[in-house]
């Protein structure tokens, strides 16, 4: 079957649609002296602590539009970094958008002067998955977006000098924490920020996302509690001016490769190791985020983390794609030219045009051989099928092959994305060319 291209996965069509109830949360049993486990849930799923705070979840059109925004912001940042690497620290050029963050390197403040370069283009962290962490002493709980595509963790803070968006949890109040301290401007930690400022001797941070969402405030230290572990002196942003597409979350947990990320700050404790699992949409179970050397499941197949392409992002070497067990004919240079990022916050996998085209063609042929006809596409998704009246569908397998031979046989819950039962689409999209 492997060479004839007919490997099939039997898909429960209902498994592509959101579940409606959540099983009781499982007690964390994995935490130990050098490890900690947090629960991961879909922000709009039945197990989300934010679920009842929403009027209704975003539409598929909104989700996919936000996803495209995120992808474009990642592309901008990678391009800017690549330019810097090539030109040896050439300055980032300001983008055309206004800068609502308005932070001036070297001095204050929270004003609205447009100076922060938009083209710094961090990936927007609206993401889909959230975790609940503790902050301060005594610790209060905050549900935040978890994001491997950015570094600086932040929460909205009292007194919200300029603006806070609506969130479900109470705002973090530094005055109620006995261990809170602002980072001073002369502290070397202030230099770790990509965008920093100074007011009254206090270090200011700013993060502006690709779609204009932003957070600005004091860079601070306090005790971070993950599972039952306390990380003392954790550096984070205490946001005093925040707005954008952050849902009802209290902020964001940055898990990138940069100096300010939790990954790096807690490297002394967990060795820079972490792992997570996103549950399928239909299941009533939760996923997890583990820290520590024991985080790696025994059956993990590894591929090199490519660190020469700049900070923050986790680059890996995608080398090939198999559909129905058959390797597609795609030159490896198609993948290696731009590289591939593993991102927790992008919903739909993006491929170079040549690779996407080969995948789409092979999948379409496999579906046709199984009696399925294509229907109209939806947003960025072009290859869609009508599963009305079908409870189980046999669809071609899709596997991603990485440098070193690691292979990700995409789970049945991840091959297709259901807009509705009448429009179920291949969950891949093109980035438009092979050179981006």
């Amino acid at each position: 079957a492997g060479s004839s291209g007919d490997e099939t996965v039997l898909l429960n069509v209902q498994s592509l649609l959101p579940g409606r109830s959540c099983a009781a949360p499982q007690e964390n049993k994995r935490s130990g002296a050098t490890s900690a486990r947090m629960q991961v849930v879909h922000q709009h799923g039945p197990c989300s602590p934010l679920a009842d705070a929403h009027g209704k979840p975003p539409s598929h059109a909104e989700i996919l539009a936000a996803d495209q925004n995120r992808v474009e912001s990642i592309q901008r940042r990678v391009a800017a970094t690549a330019g810097k690497l090539k030109k040896r620290a050439a300055p980032v050029q300001p983008g055309p958008k206004k800068n609502p963050a308005g932070i001036h390197p070297g001095h204050s403040s929270f004003s609205s002067a447009p100076l922060l370069p938009v083209s710094s283009g961090r990936a927007l962290g609206t993401g889909n998955y959230v975790v609940t962490l503790g902050l301060g002493t005594p610790a209060s709980k905050y549900t935040v977006v978890f994001d491997t595509g950015s570094d600086t963790t932040w929460v909205q803070c009292r007194p919200c000098v300029v603006k806070c968006y609506k969130q479900k949890d109470p705002l973090f109040d530094p005055a109620r924490s006995s261990t809170y301290a602002n980072v001073s401007c002369s502290d070397s930690a202030c230099d770790d920020l990509d965008e920093s400022g100074c007011t009254g001797g206090h270090c200011l941070y700013a993060v502006q996302y690709g779609d204009g969402s932003y957070t600005v405030g004091f860079f601070a230290r306090d005790t971070l509690t993950i599972a039952h572990d306390a990380i003392k002196g954790f550096q984070f942003g205490c946001g005093e001016k925040n707005d954008g597409l952050f849902g009802m979350t209290a902020g964001l947990l940055g898990l990138g490769r940069g100096k300010t990320s939790l990954t790096v700050q807690a490297q002394y404790r967990y060795g820079g190791a972490f792992a997570y699992c996103f549950p399928a949409l239909s299941t009533d179970t939760t996923g997890y985020l583990d820290f520590g050397p024991g985080a790696s499941p025994a059956n993990a197949r590894v591929t090199p983390m490519l660190t020469d392409n700049g900070p923050t992002f986790y680059f890996v070497g995608l080398t090939g794609i198999r559909v129905g067990g058959k390797q597609l004919s795609i030159p490896e240079t198609v993948f290696s030219t731009g590289g591939t990022i593993v991102d927790s916050g992008t919903v739909i996998t993006r491929l170079p045009e040549t690779a996407y085209s080969a995948l789409s063609s092979a999948f379409t042929a496999g579906m046709a051989a199984r009696g399925f006809k294509k229907v109209a596409g939806y947003s960025i998704l072009e290859t869609c099928y009508d599963f009305t009246g079908i409870s189980e569908a046999a669809v071609p397998t899709v596997s991603l092959v990485f440098k070193g031979g690691a292979c990700l046989d995409v789970d049945e819950s991840g091959i297709l994305y259901a807009i509705s039962q009448a429009q179920v689409c291949l969950a891949f999209a093109s980035i438009g060319d092979d050179e981006s």
């Binding site: 060795g271 792992a275 699992c277 939760t286 996923g287 993990a300 983390m305 739909i348």
Partner: peptide, 30 residues
């Protein structure tokens, strides 16, 4: 730049190790 999105990561344990400079994928993790 290609991006491996979270839909394709579902049910896999995605493992990062800054010390060893590896990323890993473990099926059936949740």
């Amino acid at each position: 730049t290609g991006i491996l999105g979270n839909t394709q990561q579902k049910t896999y344990g995605v493992v990062y190790d800054l010390g060893k400079k590896t990323v890993g994928f473990a099926p059936g993790a949740c």
